[in-house]
Amino acid sequence: MKKILDLRGLSCPIPLIQTKNALEDATEVCVTVDEPVAKENILKFANSRHYQAEWSAAGGEYTITIRKEM
């Protein structure tokens, strides 16, 4: 299952907590954040779980796609 989350504008560390929650019952989660700190925290989390993560930036927003290894 894939989830797409809009986490723009939420205070630290809510974007991280929501991403973590979403990954509990989804195999792929795509999140949008608008703070570099939120992006970095989410990538650190993905790394720590050895999930695949890709991100791109556009117009001050970051889109991160995280996939659990199958």
């Binding site: 560390p13 973590k20 925290n41 989390f45 720590s48």
Partner: peptide, 19 residues
Amino acid sequence: TRMCLSGGLRDFILVRDTY
């Protein structure tokens, strides 16, 4: 460095990151 002691503890608790 985005230094924040609450952030540091949170990173450790949630993702075991110690930066």
